[in-house]
Design a protein around this nucleic acid. Structure first.
Lengths: 340, 340
DNA sequence: TTGTAGGCGTTATCAA
DNA sequence: TTGATAACGCCTACAA
């Protein structure tokens, strides 16, 4: 049985032209809002379009124009993190908002294995998308490499330390980490540790550097532990390790809110009061932050704006104006709550 | 400046044919794994494909085959919920896994306004996707209506109470709610309330019915409050209201984990111990459940499997074999932790 | 088993 | 300002 046996054939430009008594060329010009169309013609064509219920055939347009009118959003994260990280959702929404306004379709490409990686690289080479936005790429990332090589318009949200020539949008992780650490110091803590993470990305590295810079001479490498993933479990393990090394710790900078949440639970378990005995600060201002007990003091990331800006930079390259390789840093702010 | 001034023209079937010394027809047959190709020809063509770096042009194939080879995933949620609901991410991943294995591309379509709704309906009519998966549709949903009318292959994850003729995959919310309520009763609670939600969806309605059924004669409508969204804030407001109505409440069934998390915080605030004074159970087994203090007893939903199954049902319709209108219910289980 | 060729619906070029 | 026409790259009858 045919799937669409009962559905009528879709109207084409040809049908519209016949209905309006015009040529296909004129109809096409009206559809694409091109100049040199008389008002009479425009009105007749628009009426005909409405009458026959015409909608443009994407495949034909793409074939003719040699573009896909789609932008890929490449998310390179293990599945578990994709589900946990609220920033990804916000970035996706921001990107989608900008693209759909410009008549581009957003295609999400999730990479969670080498096979996925190859498949996505193949998509890119195949002209499946006109441009890409890459979030959370790491050092040595094969997809980032492929994008660089193919030369497709692209933008990173955050960027891997080893790729240049592709613009990125991000936040100043160094300055933000430094600022919140300073604020933590301002609450008269004297023994402050850090649970660092994702040191294979610029975000992880810069947060650690900012922490170190704020502490200056008081920095003690012995009070820093690090884990690969920004995850709750990293916070649990990290806090245990930190307490084992320094039971008299009185301050902790967690590299993400999820890590801070894990740290808080361990502190409670060990009968330490927050913020009285130990002050804790996080990073992201995600849904975790408000959910924690006590509510978390943290750095607010403009995730939605990051997504919008990345989309705009890709669109700019598609139009031919953009300075590739330049980065944009968006402002962060500190949200001070009860945990420090 | 031209965007791709330096990129070489992509190889076509024509180039492969020339390289292999075969006709384009034969090359096409090899690419599509069709019968009636000699081994010699296949080998020659495959070598040529590798040599010239051929990748198929999607637009041309789509135009010719009158299909987009894409499936839309329609998420109809306010932005805030899209970010919070972990099920959505898991469903997306499951769907994506199945589709990419069948050479289909997943296109996410987020609806958060009437304008979005119209735009998406237009996509569907325009053949932008060959099929759709709709998650979290409500009663009277305009997109669900549009899908029904267009007659495009589709599947709901959960389904709106007022649409039939479109298959759905879901869980037995009634049975699951009933089972976990019974288990809560089994802990010797005598005054059990419910914070219901999303009563405009089958999930919300069925969870309430299951609760009611488990309680039987002990059911007291006065101990049920309801809020539109499965959200933390609904849990906060709901618990406050419930405590105001019945200070001696000793059990609560929250319609989702996020609601339960809000309820737990209010209970703590009011100096009630969980589970000693009040037992609390949730629904979803989302990331919230483990994050709560105490860890939440809840119903585990196979979200990933729901996504996979929905994708399979759409693919089946595309192939022409599927019994439309039939629903599939997947098994749930209870995860018993510390909150009750 | 292989080759040939027409056409999917658009847009762009050129001529009128 | 409008109309005619030639591609875009692929698939698939049909012929050989």
């Amino acid at each position: 049985m045919s799937i669409d046996g009962s559905r009528p054939r879709r109207a084409t430009i040809h049908d519209v032209a016949a209905e309006a008594g015009m040529s296909r060329g004129t109809v096409s010009r009206v559809i694409n809002a091109e100049p040199y169309v008389s008002d009479d013609a425009r009105i007749a064509v628009e009426a005909a379009i409405a009458k026959v219920g015409y909608v443009r055939n994407t495949a034909a347009r793409n074939l003719r124009s040699q573009r896909s009118h789609a932008i890929g959003l490449i998310v390179h994260e293990p599945h578990s993190l994709f589900l946990e990280d609220p920033n990804i959702g916000a970035i996706l929404l921001g990107t989608n908002a900008v693209l759909s306004q410009s008549d581009y379709q957003l295609v999400s490409l999730v990479i969670d294995s080498d096979r996925d990686s190859d498949r996505v690289a193949e998509y890119l080479r195949g002209g499946f998308v006109d441009g890409v936005i890459i979030i959370s790429a790491r050092a040595g990332d094969p997809i980032a490499r492929a994008v660089e090589k193919i030369g497709i318009p692209a933008a990173f949200v955050g960027h891997p330390p080893d790729i240049s020539g592709i613009p990125f949008v991000g936040i100043d992780n160094f300055a933000a980490a430094r600022a919140i650490t300073e604020r933590l110091i301002g609450t008269h803590r004297t023994k402050i540790g850090m649970i660092a993470s994702a040191l294979d990305r610029d975000s992880g590295q810069d947060r650690l550097s900012g922490f170190r810079s704020a502490l200056g001479d008081a920095f003690d490498p012995h009070l820093v532990v690090d884990f690969p993933l920004y995850a709750y479990s990293s916070g649990v393990d990290g806090m245990r390790e930190l307490l084992a090394r320094a039971p008299d710790l009185d301050g902790v900078f967690a590299a993400s809110d999820s890590i801070a949440a894990g740290a808080l639970d361990v502190l409670r378990e060990s009968n330490r009061r927050v913020p009285e005995d130990v002050g804790v600060v996080g990073f992201d201002d995600s849904a975790w932050a408000l959910r924690c007990r006590p509510a978390l003091s943290t750095v607010r990331q403009p995730a939605d704006a990051l997504g919008r800006m990345a989309a705009q930079r890709v669109l700019a390259q598609l139009r031919g104006d953009d300075t590739p390789g330049e980065g944009t840093l968006l402002e962060t702010s500190i949200v001070w709550r009860d945990s420090a």
